[in-house]
Measured scan of single mutants.
Amino acid sequence: ATNIVGKVKWYNSTKNAGFIEQDNGGKDVFVHKSAVDAAGLHSLEEGQDVIFDLEEKQGKAYAVNLRIK
């Protein structure tokens, strides 16, 4: 899926990971530091509006192509 709108639920820069809550009510999506880095960002803030694509690896959904809304 592409161009999904959501809000950062939480992001821990020590653990280099967090979750994004989908505005469409879907399951929360894992976001890794690699996606944050690829977006040219240093970190994510709780409640921040984002747009992202979903990629599945080994049955788990990940946020990729992250951008700030």
Rank of each mutant, 00 (worst) to 15 (best):
D23K: 15
D28Y: 11
A1M: 13
S43M: 11
H32N: 10
K33S: 09
K69H: 11
L54P: 00
I4L: 15
L66G: 00
V50T: 02
V29D: 00
N12F: 07
Y11I: 07
I51A: 04
G26C: 09
G26D: 09
L44K: 00
V64T: 10
D37W: 14
L44M: 05
I20Q: 01
N12R: 09
S43N: 12
G18T: 02
E45C: 14
S13A: 13
E56N: 10
Y62Q: 10
I4G: 03
G47R: 05
Q58H: 14
G26R: 10
H32E: 08
A17G: 15
K27Y: 09
S13H: 12
G25T: 07
A63G: 03
G26Y: 08
N65Y: 03
G47N: 06
N12E: 06
A1H: 13
D28L: 14
A61C: 13
I51G: 02
H32V: 06
G25P: 06
Y62R: 08
N65V: 02
A63T: 02
Y62S: 08
D28H: 09
E21F: 10
W10F: 09
A17Y: 15
A63W: 01
I68P: 07
K9D: 00
Q48V: 10
N65R: 08
V50I: 13
K57C: 12
D49H: 15
G25M: 07
K57D: 08
D28N: 09
G6N: 01
V36F: 05
V8C: 03
A1I: 12
H32L: 08
L44N: 00
A17T: 10
K27F: 09
D53S: 04
K15M: 14
V29R: 02
F19Y: 12
F52R: 00
K57S: 11
A61Q: 14
A38S: 08
K33A: 09
A17D: 03
F30V: 05
L44P: 01
K69M: 13
D37R: 14
K69P: 12
V5D: 07
A61K: 14
G6S: 01
A35Q: 09
F30Q: 05
F30S: 03
H42M: 12
D23H: 14
N24M: 09
A61Y: 15
T14D: 11
L54M: 11
A39K: 02
E45Y: 15
Q58P: 06
G26V: 07
T14G: 11
G40E: 05
K15C: 13
N16P: 03
S43E: 10
K69R: 12
D28C: 11
G18Y: 07
Q48I: 09
V31H: 01
H32D: 09
A35K: 03
N12C: 12
A38H: 08
V5R: 15
V64N: 04
T14N: 12
Q58G: 14
A39E: 02
F30D: 02
V8K: 00
E56K: 11
I68Y: 07
E46L: 12
N16L: 09
Q22F: 11
K27H: 10
S13P: 14
H32Y: 08
A17R: 12
G25H: 08
Y62E: 06
N65M: 03
V31R: 00
T2W: 12
W10C: 10
Y62D: 02
I4S: 05
W10H: 04
E21C: 14
V5C: 14
A61S: 13
L66E: 00
V8G: 00
G59S: 06
E46D: 09
V5Q: 13
D37Q: 14
N24A: 10
L41C: 06
E56C: 14
L66F: 01
T2Y: 14
T14W: 13
I4K: 09
E55W: 15
F30N: 03
N24P: 07
G47S: 05
W10V: 05
N16G: 15
K9Y: 04
I4F: 08
H42G: 11
W10K: 04
I51M: 10
G26H: 09
I20P: 00
K9F: 03
R67S: 04
E46P: 15
I4C: 11
Q58Y: 14
L44W: 02
E46F: 11
G47C: 07
E46V: 15
E55M: 14
K27C: 10
V29E: 00
I4P: 01
V64L: 04
Y11L: 10
W10L: 04
G59D: 07
V50C: 04
D49L: 15
G6P: 00
I51V: 11
Y11P: 00
I4H: 07
G18W: 10
V8Y: 03
W10D: 02
K33N: 04
G59Q: 05
I4R: 12
D53N: 05
G18A: 03
G59C: 07
F52T: 01
K15I: 13
D23I: 15
A17I: 15
A35N: 04
A63V: 06
A39P: 01
V31Y: 03
K9M: 04
T14F: 13
S43T: 14
R67I: 06
A35G: 03
W10Q: 03
H32A: 09
K60T: 07
H32G: 10
A1L: 13
N24E: 08
Y11T: 05
R67F: 04
D37Y: 14
T14L: 13
W10I: 05
N3I: 03
R67V: 06
E45F: 15
D23Y: 15
V8P: 00
R67M: 04
V31D: 00
S13E: 11
A35C: 05
K60E: 07
F19G: 03
Y62N: 06
V8T: 02
G6L: 02
F19C: 11
D28P: 10
A61G: 08
N3A: 08
A61I: 15
F52N: 00
N3C: 10
V50G: 00
V8H: 00
I68W: 06
A39H: 02
D49A: 15
Q58N: 15
L41Q: 05
F19E: 07
V5L: 13
Q48N: 05
D28I: 11
E46A: 15
T14A: 13
L41H: 06
L54R: 06
Q58F: 13
D49F: 15
L41M: 09
V36R: 02
Q22A: 09
Q58C: 14
E46G: 12
F30G: 02
N65K: 06
G40T: 04
W10T: 05
D53I: 03
N24H: 10
V36Y: 02
N3H: 08
K69V: 14
N24T: 09
A39S: 10
Q58V: 08
A39Y: 03
K27G: 11
F30W: 08
G47A: 05
V64P: 01
D37A: 13
N3K: 06
L54G: 00
L41S: 03
K15A: 10
S13D: 09
N12H: 08
A1V: 12
Q22G: 06
W10Y: 08
A61D: 07
K57F: 13
Y11M: 06
E21N: 08
S13F: 11
N3E: 07
E21T: 15
V5H: 15
D28W: 14
Q22E: 04
R67T: 05
E56H: 13
I51Q: 05
V29G: 01
G40K: 07
E56I: 15
N24W: 09
Y62G: 03
K15S: 09
D23M: 15
L54F: 05
E45Q: 13
T2L: 13
K60R: 14
I20S: 01
S43C: 13
L44H: 01
Q22H: 08
G59W: 04
N3Q: 07
V5T: 15
S43G: 13
D53M: 03
G47E: 03
E46W: 12
L44I: 07
L66I: 12
L66M: 03
L54T: 05
T14M: 13
I68K: 06
K57P: 03
A38T: 07
I68M: 09
V50D: 00
D53T: 04
F30M: 07
K15P: 02
G26M: 09
V50N: 00
S34Y: 09
D53R: 03
A63F: 02
E21M: 14
G18P: 01
H42F: 12
S13V: 13
S43Y: 13
G25K: 08
G40Q: 07
D23G: 14
R67K: 08
G40L: 06
V36A: 03
L41E: 04
F19A: 07
G26A: 10
E56L: 13
K9V: 05
N24K: 10
L66W: 00
H42E: 12
V50P: 00
G40R: 07
K27S: 10
A39F: 03
V8Q: 00
K60C: 11
E46T: 15
N65Q: 04
D53P: 00
V31M: 05
A39V: 06
A38P: 02
I20G: 00
V8W: 07
K60F: 12
I20T: 00
D53V: 03
L54C: 08
A63L: 04
T14Y: 14
L44R: 00
V8M: 03
N3R: 07
V64H: 04
W10P: 00
G26Q: 10
H42A: 12
S34E: 08
K15N: 08
L54E: 02
T2R: 14
L54S: 03
F19K: 07
W10E: 03
N3D: 11
H32Q: 07
L54Y: 06
G18R: 01
N24R: 10
D23L: 15
I20W: 01
G18C: 03
D28M: 13
V5M: 13
D28S: 08
I68N: 05
Y62M: 09
A38N: 07
K7E: 01
G47F: 04
V29W: 05
G47V: 02
K7Q: 05
Y62H: 09
V64Y: 05
A63E: 01
N65F: 03
T14I: 12
A61P: 08
E21V: 13
D23E: 14
Q48P: 01
